[in-house]
Nucleic acid binder design. Sequence first.
DNA 1: GGTAGCAGAGAAAGCGCTTACCGAAGCCTT
DNA 2: AAGGCTTCGGTAAGCGCTTTCTCTGCTACC
Lengths: 352, 352
Amino acid sequence: MSAPASKSPATLHDVAREAGVSLATASRSLNGSARKVNEAYRERVVEAAQRLGYTTNLFAQAVAKGSTTTVALLVADIADPYFSSIAAGVIDAASEENLVVTIAVTGRNAQRELETVRALRGQRPRVMILAGSRPTASAFQEELRAELTAFEDTGGKAAFISQDAPPFATVLLDNRRGAHDLAVSLAELGYRDVAVIAGPSEIRTAEERLDGFTAGLAEHGILLTPERIIQADFTRDGGYRGAQELLASGLAVDLIFAVNDVMAVGVVSALRNAGVVPGEEIGVAGYDDIPTVQDITPALTTVRIPLEDVGRRALRLATGSASSGAGTEAGDGPGTIPMKTILRESTPRRQA
Amino acid sequence: MSAPASKSPATLHDVAREAGVSLATASRSLNGSARKVNEAYRERVVEAAQRLGYTTNLFAQAVAKGSTTTVALLVADIADPYFSSIAAGVIDAASEENLVVTIAVTGRNAQRELETVRALRGQRPRVMILAGSRPTASAFQEELRAELTAFEDTGGKAAFISQDAPPFATVLLDNRRGAHDLAVSLAELGYRDVAVIAGPSEIRTAEERLDGFTAGLAEHGILLTPERIIQADFTRDGGYRGAQELLASGLAVDLIFAVNDVMAVGVVSALRNAGVVPGEEIGVAGYDDIPTVQDITPALTTVRIPLEDVGRRALRLATGSASSGAGTEAGDGPGTIPMKTILRESTPRRQA
DNA sequence: GGTAGCAGAGAAAGCGCTTACCGAAGCCTT
DNA sequence: AAGGCTTCGGTAAGCGCTTTCTCTGCTACC
């Protein structure tokens, strides 16, 4: 049952001996060094390494070099398609730069997020990317900021996604504008009795979407009164319950906008279970354009965010390999991601 | 534009000096050591560490200790809900044991997988978890096996998910039985003209599901002829095209089973676009029970796998903290995950 | 032919941490 | 009261790498 006396992995030392060269030469041969190495030597070293199944111990390398090849990514929930798509982008861009990605999940919990950041700092990652944090909770806000500042002071780089956290880099999603445009489109389609399933108020993203949406409606003379705004928690079930609550309230409603798709899916389900035909009797719109929403019935109107791109962008922004200009619409300001309203069956034109 | 002369992070040395104790004492105070430390000293050290914003450099610790706190997870595609759910489980279980998880994606590419394993080895992870590999491709198979063997020989532990790779630990999903039971249920519902959207033949999981399904049908006298089996690639689009192909073939079909849900979703979409009402004219079934499938119309019949559990289990299996017995059905053999057929609207009882 | 100059291998000093090992101090035993 | 234990700081030797610096052996130039 017990493991066989496991030899430890081959070290550079072993390789050097095997190749009959010095430690220094071995190091220089294997890991790109500024200095040149005699080609014959290099070959011998490479062969020896191969023979011994040697792989550079990245930890040792990191301590010697004083810098790592790690990227830390914090997400609220990796099983949520919003975050997993972003993660895919981050990982993709990272592997292009030979960086490995460590993922931690914070469960939308500020306390936990702070702890995670602290723990992750021990890894001395080159960069830290935070998605889905809720920095509005000001007590933690301060501590988090302090922690990240310390991180940056010691050579790291922090980047936020969709969260404008002033001293730090951000991949800005123009949630306000996206939601605004969506509202305008919907108003033009004839919707008037609008309700919103909002997100947790401490989450900036949620707040911005609500704001933008409200503003867009206002331009068409539609007022979003407080009782038409239901708070939920970004989950499918939250959306479901929100819709139920709305139906129970007896308010006249011809459109429900959930500030993210996951909740919108819950809304659709709730409506149907309540005997309301989504899309016909009540329109439904979401936000994010996660893959699911084009497959449900009715296909959901939403706002598309190129999530993988966002992830990639965040990484590049943080590592400094910013492909400046690419993808950034002129006038959007640097780093702002374009979004697009996608109208689908869930919000047909309203017969007046 | 350039960063301010960034001081490097505080070291243990700094802490020791600040607290007026020796390096050794500082180390012992901060990182659980077998030996006792005078409480007064310990406090001073802890305070000093706090004051300096010190966090143990895990890399240095790892090189000194000769062991890390890293877990490497390889998945085919992190944006696929199948894998992201597993990842969620792995991360959850890992954080319980204070391990950090590094995720790499291999894109269902054997070559890439091999390279990734090699690269990840450099991190000297405690364990490596492989999900969605395709070890049937025998050339790489050998090399991969060799690499992993070397990994284990040097103290690591490799674990596969849903992939029986003999010398290594595995969280076995009884795909064969799950698919078998599904087939039986469907046959009992009256389906006869069955077709399958199979997965890539090198992927064991795909193969097992096809096998089990075929066997289940056979018990009810239903023969699955080769032209009724379409190969696809586990993606939504693959399922979509598979269904198109099937429709174009002119075969009589009353049920399409896609070996994973993601493809099944594509099938539903293809049917509908071709003017066929899924669930009524042709039944559809999938496998995995990803969240989406209960929200699409018709809700899909599928086989439920407790994916997060699978991830958790894999981690525990690999770290040795096996909660033996928990969740394992007696007689299933250790480590086999129970699965359950979920019948939904997409496969109503067939009128004879 | 002699000296300057350069290329490039090797020795050795770290990187930040852990952990034998050493030795001073306090306690007990007889 | 003296020797032997136990306790617990501190010293220093690594862990597996990188990198500076030294030093040898050439080539090159006049």
